[in-house]
Computed example of a mutant assay.
Amino acid sequence: MTDDNTPNRCRIILISPPGIAAEAFATKFAAAIAGGDVASVILPPYEMDEASYQAFAERVVPMAQAAGIAAVIVDDTRIAGRVKADGIHIEGGKAALAEAVENFQSRIAVGAGGVKSRDDALELGEERPDYVFFGRFGYDNQPEAHQRNLSLGGWWAEMVEIPGVVMAGSSLDSVATVAATGTDFVALSAAVFSEGVDPSEAVQRANAILDETAPRFEPAG
């Protein structure tokens, strides 16, 4: 989403949660993206085998793309190609990232994760990915964002031009804390997709929090 209605501040990236079937997630995802602006969705494989992961992606990727939302596959470049994903997220370190950048970045976005330290982030940044992700999929089980992710995300936003993504906590109250780091994107999973949460209301509220609290970015150029 790059039209004039794109917010000029931290935006939402949704992360599919662990342990959910494709159809159940599709229902929640449809509700979530009806709630307001979402930049992209990342689909980790968690414990799925290759066939199950591809079936999951085949269900969700077209929904995202029809709504103008970039769909990102994690680590499996073959599945990314088969489902015509918009991006590939690499958790496997610098060599795997370098290979993905060389082979795929001319056609789709290539993001980097698995960061545990500033040195990790800088090493991955040398490969010029499209973003660097601070956090671990499926570990947003505390209300607040992990302090290490906040610290790394804030440092990255201040020092490096490559966009950053910071994983929020399980409470929407953590959205403002993440945005305050100056990061480009806040990643939400449990805060939107947990049992008892209305995904549409959650995304609507998250965007309202960002509208109220997130720093505005300087125009490009």
Rank of each mutant, 00 (worst) to 15 (best):
E218G: 02
I13R: 08
A220Y: 07
A180V: 08
D3W: 09
D75I: 06
D37R: 11
S189P: 02
F134P: 08
A24F: 04
H146D: 15
L97V: 14
V197Q: 10
T2Q: 11
G169C: 06
A30Y: 00
E158S: 15
A57N: 00
I69N: 00
I20S: 09
G135H: 11
A202R: 13
F29R: 00
S151Q: 11
S200T: 13
E58Q: 13
A39P: 01
A34L: 07
V186H: 05
A168H: 14
T183A: 15
R205Q: 15
A24W: 00
D184V: 10
S16N: 06
E161S: 14
L172I: 02
L124V: 01
I12E: 00
T183G: 10
A71F: 02
E127I: 03
A80V: 01
Y53S: 00
R59K: 14
I13K: 08
I13G: 00
V72M: 06
G36H: 07
E50H: 04
V74S: 02
A51Y: 01
E127A: 12
V83A: 03
S106Y: 05
A70G: 01
A206D: 05
R205K: 15
A24E: 08
A80C: 00
V178S: 10
S117L: 10
G154D: 13
Q65S: 00
P129L: 01
E23F: 03
E127D: 04
A176C: 04
A70H: 05
T27F: 08
A109W: 01
V192P: 12
D75P: 03
A71Y: 03
A180L: 12
A176I: 13
A100H: 06
D120P: 13
K116L: 13
F134R: 05
I79W: 01
A190M: 10
Y139H: 13
D3H: 09
Q105E: 12
D3K: 10
Q147G: 03
G68Q: 09
S16H: 01
R136K: 14
L97K: 11
V203I: 15
F137W: 11
E91G: 02
A71L: 04
D76N: 13
A187K: 11
I79S: 02
K84F: 11
G164W: 02
L97S: 13
C10G: 10
E158A: 15
M63W: 00
R59V: 13
I20F: 09
R118F: 09
S117Q: 11
K94H: 14
N207Y: 04
I15S: 10
V61H: 01
A31P: 07
D37Q: 13
A66W: 05
H146P: 05
G68V: 09
E212S: 14
P143H: 13
P219Y: 07
K84C: 09
I88A: 04
I33G: 02
P62N: 00
D140F: 04
A26F: 03
A32V: 14
A157T: 06
